[in-house]
């Protein structure tokens, strides 16, 4: 753990930059997949990058990637999608951080992924509720089931790639 502050910052900067790029690519990939019934809502595959950033660089890293993802959505898909992306990923980052910190090691990577995906969709539903009204409540169960699957997928991928990212650390 002996390293200068500037070197640590450079490593963290590089890691988060790579993960932001990954988030952008995953967002595009997600755009190719069929739309969810709630407009602007996305499955949250790009959440994988946020999750990995959270695991390597803590809350700060997670939020940096989440904000970048929101900005990317603003540029590529417009303001409505950006608000949805932003609310989803910020709530999801907070939820995953709390889960990692306070679950006493009980959850596996899949459980963390599911937590993140469910709160990603809950964040989007809350935003859609504010914009559109209570008609969106019918989609809650579908989005939760979808989140269990995407969360498991992102959790598995995260558990595979994370060791490599943690190696870059030192």
């Amino acid at each position: 753990m002996k390293k200068s502050i500037s070197r640590y910052n450079a490593a963290a900067f590089a890691r988060i930059a790579v993960l932001c790029a990954a988030a952008a690519v995953l967002s595009i990939l997600e755009g190719i997949l069929p739309d969810l019934p709630v407009p602007g809502a996305k499955l949250g595959l790009a959440n994988l990058a946020v999750m990995t950033a959270l695991c390597t660089d803590g809350l700060k890293g997670g939020f940096c990637t989440a904000v970048f993802k929101g900005f990317f959505a603003l540029v590529t898909r417009g303001p409505a999608a950006a608000i949805m992306s932003f609310s989803g990923s910020v709530l999801s980052t907070l939820a995953m951080w709390l889960a990692i910190k306070y679950d006493r090691g009980k959850l596996g990577f899949i459980g963390i992924g599911i937590t993140g995906a469910v709160f990603h969709n809950i964040g989007q539903i809350i935003t859609a509720y504010i914009i559109i009204g209570d008609t969106v409540r019918y989609y809650v169960p579908y989005l939760i089931i979808a989140a269990v699957f995407t969360g498991a997928v992102t959790g598995i991928v995260n558990s595979i790639i994370l060791p490599y990212y943690l190696k870059i650390n030192n």
């Binding site: 695991c55 390597t56 990692i100 910190k101 679950d103 090691g105 009980k106 959850l107 596996g108 990577f109 899949i110 459980g111 963390i112 599911i114 937590t115 469910v118 809650v140 169960p141 579908y142 939760i144 089931i145 989140a147 269990v148 498991a152 959790g155 598995i156 558990s159 994370l162 943690l166 650390n169």
Partner: peptide, 25 residues
């Protein structure tokens, strides 16, 4: 990161979490 390194890919509580969420939905 120590807290994360020690984790399993699939823990028993993950299955419980997924089951509860799907049942509620």
């Amino acid at each position: 990161s120590d807290n994360i390194k020690s984790r399993k890919r699939l823990a028993a509580s993950d299955v419980v979490l997924a089951f509860v969420l799907v049942s509620v939905s």
